[in-house]
């Protein structure tokens, strides 16, 4: 399989001005995404997990060109998406679409479903006649499980799950190669979550899509992803195939995250060991030196404060000086501190 997208050293930096600061004062820099690297193969699903504020959504917005980013994002044809002018980018926008978190907020309340789903088509294929556009919209509605005769309805007349289906239909109408799903199910009920996820998986198979699936629900990510990337404070902590990552997490942060996943079985739930993390997420305005996770890591040593660990290890890449499963003693220490 060839790489659809290979991202190298992607950085998103916001410059913040203090309220009432003098115009010549130097703005503070916030590194929301700080040197992220990954490759995405054609037809694959890459899950991105991490706690809130770690840069998941910013990464997605950078890839689609909604926030300016530096670094490289090489598309399958060898062009660097981040270096394109807006005009050149237009051609690639057809291939990269996005599904948003809040199903209702991502639909314009003054437009009906037909207009909403047709918008990308009208923008990119102005040559298509109206009847053809309408036919395609109806076909797409059927594909995502909506009744095509509801084409004239408005978003407020639909449920959350149906709204998300409309959002998915809008993303797929141009038959893109890559769909970025930014927490597509976190605003939905659990039963609806399953429907929407299974719909995404089915459509991925049918249309040969690549997915970047952002979520903070680890079980959902495990279910859909081929590979999973763990982010912390804008940096990649661990990147591995879903099976390997969930079976034998190497980074202490990943282990802490996975240990916190609730299991819907009371006996297992009571028996599992939770690794608590001390403190809060450090401010991204002033990240720790060296390894960004060291302030909360049960295994941190002097070297972690001095050197930034590189992401290394081929198929199962870890950014840690001392990877490997946590020992009983370390877990006990983590509990004491927290």
């Amino acid at each position: 399989m060839s790489d659809l997208l290979s991202v190298r050293d992607l950085r998103v930096t916001f410059s913040l001005r203090r309220q009432g600061a003098m115009p010549w004062a130097r703005p503070t820099l916030l590194h929301a995404v700080n040197g992220v690297e990954f490759t995405l193969r054609a037809g694959e699903t890459l899950g991105i997990v991490g706690e809130s504020g770690c840069g998941k959504s910013t990464l997605a917005r950078a890839l689609i060109g909604l926030v300016p980013a530096s670094g490289q994002a090489e598309w399958i044809d060898g062009r660097d998406l981040l270096a394109l002018t807006p005009r050149q980018m237009m051609a690639y926008r057809q291939d990269i679409q996005m599904v948003f978190q809040d199903p209702l907020a991502s639909l314009n309340p003054r437009m009906n479903v037909g207009q909403i789903i047709a918008e990308p088509l009208v923008t990119h294929r102005p040559d298509l006649p109206r009847a053809e556009i309408r036919a395609r919209v109806r076909a797409m509605m059927e594909k995502v499980g909506l009744l095509p005769n509801q084409i004239n309805r408005y978003p407020h007349e639909f449920s959350g799950g149906q709204c998300q289906r409309i959002g998915i239909a809008r993303a797929l109408i141009l038959e893109p190669k890559l769909v970025i799903c930014d927490e597509p199910v976190s605003a939905l009920d659990v039963s609806i979550q399953a429907q929407v996820i299974n719909l995404l998986i089915r459509l991925q198979k049918e249309m040969g899509l690549s997915l970047i699936f952002i979520a903070h629900d680890l079980s959902v990510v495990k279910h859909v992803s081929d590979r999973v990337m763990v982010l912390y404070l804008g940096k990649v902590m661990e990147l591995a195939s879903a099976g390997a990552l969930y079976a034998s997490p190497q980074h202490p942060y990943t282990q802490a995250l996975l240990s916190a996943v609730p299991v819907p079985d009371p006996t297992i739930e009571a028996a599992r060991t939770i690794v608590p993390l001390k403190g809060d997420l450090p401010s991204p305005l002033n990240p720790p030196s060296g390894c960004v996770f060291r302030t909360r890591c049960p295994r941190a040593e002097a070297r972690c404060a001095a050197e930034v660990p590189a992401l290394a290890g081929g198929d199962h890449a870890v950014a840690c000086h001392f990877p490997g499963p946590l020992t009983e003693a370390e877990i006990a220490r983590a509990r004491e501190v927290a």
């Binding site: 917005r61 689609i64 060109g65 909604l66 980018m89 237009m90 926008r93 679409q97 996005m98 948003f100 978190q101 809040d102 907020a105 991502s106 639909l107 314009n108 437009m111 918008e119 990308p120 923008t123 990119h124 959002g167 809008r170």
Partner: peptide, 20 residues
């Protein structure tokens, strides 16, 4: 709001976003 972001991500021009 997300629907404006969605339109921008699709590549709708600023003028049309304002109007539509």
């Amino acid at each position: 709001r997300e629907f404006v972001e969605a339109a921008r991500a699709t590549g709708v021009s600023s003028f049309r976003i304002i109007i539509r």
